[in-house]
Simulated scan of single mutants.
Amino acid sequence: MADELDFQFGRVDVARNMASYYPHSLQPTLFGNVSLVRNRGRIGPPDNKR
């Protein structure tokens, strides 16, 4: 597998005031296998601070 495969899932719960996205990617390893890399983030402006 020469290139990465990127995709993401999203979740929005208005009742709990929560919005998240979960980007995933399939990336090749040094040994010729494929690895699933998962991240997590919040939807909205990055300067929302409390």
Rank of each mutant, 00 (worst) to 15 (best):
M1N: 07
M1V: 06
M1G: 08
A2N: 12
E4Y: 11
E4L: 10
E4A: 08
L5W: 05
D6R: 12
F7H: 00
F7D: 00
F7G: 01
F7Y: 02
Q8W: 14
Q8K: 15
F9K: 02
G10N: 06
G10L: 04
G10Y: 05
G10M: 05
R11P: 09
R11N: 12
V12F: 05
V12I: 10
V12C: 03
D13L: 08
D13F: 08
V14C: 10
V14K: 14
R16V: 13
R16G: 10
R16P: 03
N17C: 06
N17Y: 05
M18H: 14
M18W: 11
M18Y: 10
A19C: 04
A19K: 03
A19W: 01
S20Q: 11
S20F: 11
Y21M: 05
Y21V: 04
P23T: 00
P23V: 00
P23K: 00
P23G: 00
H24Y: 06
H24G: 02
S25W: 04
Q27N: 03
P28Q: 06
P28F: 02
P28N: 04
T29Y: 07
T29K: 10
T29E: 05
L30D: 09
L30E: 13
L30N: 12
F31R: 15
F31I: 09
F31H: 08
F31L: 11
F31N: 15
F31C: 07
F31M: 07
G32M: 02
G32D: 01
G32Q: 01
G32L: 01
N33A: 14
V34S: 15
V34P: 02
S35T: 08
S35A: 07
S35E: 12
L36P: 03
V37F: 04
R38S: 13
N39D: 07
N39I: 02
N39W: 04
R40M: 11
R40D: 09
R40H: 15
R42L: 06
I43F: 02
G44I: 00
G44S: 01
P45M: 10
P45C: 15
P46K: 07
P46N: 07
P46H: 06
D47K: 14
N48D: 15
N48F: 12
K49A: 15
K49I: 13
K49L: 15
R50F: 11
